[in-house]
Write a protein that binds this DNA or RNA. Structure first.
Length: 636
RNA sequence: GGCGGUGUAGCUCAGUUGGUUAGAGCAGCGGAAUCAUAAUCCGCGUGUCCGGGGUUCAAGUCCCUGCACCGCUACCA
């Protein structure tokens, strides 16, 4: 008997609607769990939402509702999206659920009482020092500051200390490192595992376990003036969602006795691969078995961004391709785990070649011929068909091949293996040409060809069902089967279909799509939102300037410090062009600068203005006046 | 600059612990067939496996080095 299988996605922060990134991870998890289910394994799939924190509280206030009510609304978008994408989770944990809160409080209590092997408390009190904006009532990172002031309130933050509890991560580092090295905590892909091990070399410090100033959160059981730190709270969802502190039997089953897998994108590597196992060790709980971190994708070679207008909305894809093909297309763009590029132009081509031409057409030609030549009844198998033994062998071997890939998270390889059988079946159909056999008076032989193809289709539909759950059922329906047929065991055995069973097909399973480009609509929308008033544009005072001298800024490889002449005066600016221009090259050039920009300090160097340059990918060019104009000439 | 990654056919990528003539899909060209969603099937690729060293009987596959690119990170007003 196999161990039960437990898989999670991260919980998603509800300050955002679900986007393609969320969808990608969640579809992958759903697909992996469905494959496990095919083998007959008991499975549990947990996803959910992260709903605490200052940002949420603020967003709720803006919307004029209580935080909880605000979250309730956003959560519906997530649930709806997952439903639309055929994601079938077993648990949906919200960090505002009472059972989550209870669970976190239990964990915190245990951690607070626990001691390290050398007898030190795991949780200790310390001070956190940071930049605090009194108007926001929150700590800001240096990165968030604009010109050294709070971007919202334009006031400088004060350096403030607050009491925090800390988690003694340092006590677990050696042990944890060994667990990772020995794969007892299996981190995949390998490059991510190396990255984690690299973090140990770079030094890891204890982290905050609580915050004092945050209000929307879970108060510590032992100090109600503090709230559990976001990562402590969020990571706990993986156990609160399966009964920790609530239903011990369930927790035993899914955490202590199951194979536990966390799936996520690589950005949250440190928290999951280091903090989370350390917390569990401190609490005396088992660590997860596997952590898989998939990569990031770009769209048409560029990072997704609103200004580029190259985002992919899962809902748009569903509208164009349907939920099954959307899942298929997203998972076949590049290998799972690696970084990759999604090219929208490939969607239609891939859909047509794989799904319409190969799979859909196979189903169609086989079913229609059975209907036309065999009265819609599945004919009997026949002997000695050209390539018959080979296709049967390939089909019977396929379940093992597919699962071997899936168990290594090689989703693309698994899918391609299934598609291989589709191609074999089309080839088999062609070489035996049953339509000729019918005409030549060998209907039995023709029937045998069709029987083998029908069986291949059944096995294909079963093995692709985790990727395309509803389309697979539609295909099985053509063969007169339902979801009871969906199991790996059934896929392993040929001659499952009874000769004589009714075969019927209505339309096309995957109708061919026209390859046309009609995305102008969305592009226009984005431009409209960005329209400027003439007066707004005029606020930027641009002038021609001459570079008098230039030098590199020490310790920064992108920065040049420029002394420039703007006619009325000489001033200094800092520009991020060092990778494209040497100081010598840029000296003497006439450039365009915005002169009425707030002064700023960059890398400790004062900058009074910004120069104009055009950049695309790896190329950057200064914007220069086409003719000869003196410094100070205004640009309108 | 630090850490990590990548570099194989026009494009997207496979190439397992080093071992025979380096593969697949897509696109392209030519042909066959007409059951089927103008879908399918067959044939066609001498690719400096980024460059340079090295280890080895043997390297796309290991080691060193250089270059290019990507991600995170610091700095990009």
């Amino acid at each position: 008997m196999q161990r039960p299988f437990y898989i999670t996605t991260p919980i998603y922060y509800v300050n955002d609607r679900p986007h393609i990134g969320h969808a990608y991870t969640t579809i992958a998890a759903d697909l992996l769990v469905r494959y496990q289910k095919l083998t007959g394994r008991e499975t549990f799939f947990l996803t959910g939402t992260d709903e605490h924190g200052t940002k949420i509280a603020e967003a709720a206030e803006k919307a004029g509702v209580e935080p909880k009510a605000f979250c309730d609304q956003v959560v519906q978008h997530f649930k709806k999206s997952w439903q639309n994408l055929l994601v079938s989770y077993d648990g949906f944990i919200r960090t505002t659920d009472q059972k989550h809160i209870n669970s976190v409080r239990k964990l915190l209590t245990i951690l607070n009482d626990a001691r390290t092997e050398s007898g030190e408390p795991i949780i200790y009190s310390g001070t956190y020092e940071g930049l605090y904006c009194t108007a926001c009532e929150k700590f800001l990172t240096e990165r968030e500051l604009v010109d050294g002031v709070c971007p919202d309130h334009k006031i400088p933050p004060t350096v403030l200390k607050e009491k925090n509890y800390f988690f003694r991560l340092s006590a677990y580092l050696d042990k944890l490192k060994k667990l990772i090295e020995t794969d007892q905590l299996m981190i995949r892909p390998q490059e991510r595992r190396r990255e984690v091990l690299g973090l140990f070399e770079q030094g890891l410090t204890d982290f905050s376990a609580s915050r004092e100033k945050v209000k929307w959160g879970i108060p510590l059981p032992y100090d109600s003036s503090q709230v559990a730190y976001v990562w402590i709270e969020a990571l706990s969802n993986y156990i609160s969602g399966i009964g920790y502190g609530d239903d011990e039997d369930q927790f035993d089953k899914w955490w202590r006795n199951a194979e536990t897998v966390h799936l996520m994108a690589k950005d949250i590597l440190k928290f999951h691969c280091i903090w989370w196992p350390a917390m569990l060790m401190a609490a005396g709980l088992p660590i997860p078995d596997k952590i898989f971190l998939h990569g990031y994708f770009t769209v048409d070679g560029e990072k997704m961004s609103k200004t580029l207008g190259n985002q992919i909305d899962p809902n748009d894809m569903i509208e164009q391709f349907g939920p099954d093909a959307t899942r298929y297309l997203l998972q076949t763009q590049y290998p799972f785990g690696a970084d990759g590029d999604i090219q929208k132009s490939r969607f239609v081509a891939k859909y047509n070649s794989d799904l319409a031409n190969d799979l859909g057409n196979l189903v169609s030609r086989v079913a229609k011929m059975i209907m036309a030549s065999f009265d819609g009844k599945l004919p009997k198998p026949a002997e000695s068909l050209d390539g018959g033994d080979e296709i049967i062998a390939e089909a019977e071997k396929l379940p093992e091949t597919v699962m071997a890939h899936i168990n290594k998270f090689k989703i693309l390889a698994a899918i391609e293996a299934v598609l291989g059988l589709v191609r074999t079946a089309n080839r088999f159909f062609d070489t035996n040409a049953p339509w000729k056999l019918v005409k030549n008076g060998s209907p039995d032989k023709a029937g045998g060809v069709l029987y083998i193809c029908a069986e291949a289709i059944r096995i294909i539909a079963t093995l692709i069902s985790p990727v395309m759950p509803s389309k697979s059922l539609e295909i099985l329906g053509v063969l007169g089967l339902g979801d009871e047929a969906l199991s790996l065991d059934n896929a392993r055995t040929f001659y499952y279909l009874e000769p004589g069973c009714k075969i019927k097909i209505k339309g096309s399973v995957f109708p061919r799509l026209k390859d046309e480009k009609k995305k102008d609509k969305t592009e226009k929308k984005i431009i409209d939102n960005n329209l400027l008033d003439t007066s707004e544009f005029a606020r930027a005072e641009m002038v021609v300037a001459e570079v008098i001298s230039a030098e590199r800024v020490e310790g920064a490889d992108r920065l040049l410090k420029l002394q420039i002449d703007i006619g009325s005066e000489k001033r200094q600016i800092v520009a991020g062009v060092a990778q494209f221009y040497t100081p010598e090259e840029i000296t003497g050039k006439k450039i365009v600068v915005v002169k009425n920009l707030k002064p700023a300090k960059i890398r400790g160097v004062e900058s009074n203005g910004i120069l104009l340059a055009a950049k695309k990918g790896k190329k950057l060019c200064l914007v220069v006046p086409e003719g000869d104009l003196p410094p100070g000439a205004a640009i309108n």
